[in-house]
Simulated scan of single mutants.
Amino acid sequence: MTGKPAPSAEARDLRALLEAVRDAVTLDYGIPDYERRLVARTRLARTVLDAVAKEPADEIGWNADWLRGKLAAEQADAEKREKNRCGRCRRPFDPTDTRFDGHDRYGDTPWCRSCVDTCHEGSAEHICVICDPTRYSGGAR
């Protein structure tokens, strides 16, 4: 931009930046890796706020867009990690650990071989999220 933005545009950009920072530091407490993700997202927000303090006012909108892009990429990475971990023990799947009680994915299920092996070793009264998912999560096998 060449020149100083209008006060209304500056206020709009500042509001967008504040909303992006709020989104960066707001996560659901129940998600896996809550602390690690919040620290990473807070670092991004701090980087943007430090840049805004040093740069001209017409760059605020760019910083808000940059932060939103980084948050979207972080969310996509978190969703990818979540798909690649056991639904019971929450450990990441290890495709190289193909033992019967290893941590490779068990077939197409959301569980690792170790959890399925433990479930199959249970007693007659044994009930868990693997053998009775409707009781614990409402989902079907």
Rank of each mutant, 00 (worst) to 15 (best):
G30Y: 04
A124S: 11
F93K: 11
E19Y: 01
W66M: 07
G107K: 13
K54W: 01
T118D: 13
R85Y: 01
T2I: 07
A76R: 12
A45E: 08
A73C: 02
E125W: 02
L18N: 12
E82Y: 02
D50S: 08
R41S: 05
D33G: 03
E125S: 14
H126S: 09
T2M: 04
N63D: 09
R15Q: 11
A40S: 14
D77L: 12
A45N: 09
W62H: 11
A57K: 10
E125T: 12
D94A: 09
N63H: 15
A45Q: 06
G3A: 10
S123K: 12
D104W: 11
E35S: 06
G139C: 05
L71Q: 06
D13H: 11
Y106M: 13
D101N: 14
L67T: 05
E19F: 01
D132I: 00
G122S: 11
R85M: 06
V52I: 04
L38T: 08
G122E: 11
C89P: 01
H126N: 08
S8L: 10
S137M: 04
I31Y: 03
Y136T: 05
S123C: 02
I31G: 07
T26I: 02
E82I: 00
A72L: 11
P56E: 15
P95S: 12
E55G: 13
G102T: 08
A11M: 08
D77H: 09
H126K: 08
A73Q: 15
A64E: 05
G87S: 08
D104E: 14
C119S: 15
A73H: 09
Y34R: 13
T118I: 12
E74V: 01
L67K: 07
L27Q: 06
E35V: 07
E19C: 04
T98C: 01
K70W: 01
R91P: 00
A11P: 00
A53Y: 07
E55K: 07
E79S: 11
D101P: 00
D97T: 09
T98M: 08
V48T: 11
R113F: 03
T26L: 04
D132L: 02
R113L: 03
I130M: 04
R135E: 15
G138A: 07
A124R: 11
T134P: 01
T118H: 10
K83H: 05
R46G: 14
T42S: 15
L67A: 05
L27C: 06
A9K: 01
D94H: 10
S8C: 01
D104R: 13
G122V: 08
H126Y: 08
R15D: 10
P92C: 03
E55P: 00
N84F: 06
D50C: 02
V48S: 07
L27N: 03
R91T: 02
A51R: 14
P5M: 11
V21H: 03
K80T: 10
R81F: 06
I130V: 09
R12Y: 04
T47G: 15
T2D: 10
R85D: 02
D117Q: 07
S114C: 09
K80F: 04
D65W: 00
A64Y: 08
D132F: 01
P5W: 13
E59V: 09
L27W: 07
R91W: 02
R41C: 09
V39R: 15
E19D: 15
A9S: 12
K54F: 00
R36K: 13
V25P: 00
K54A: 15
D13T: 02
L67S: 04
E79L: 13
D104Q: 13
Q75Y: 06
F100N: 11
F93G: 10
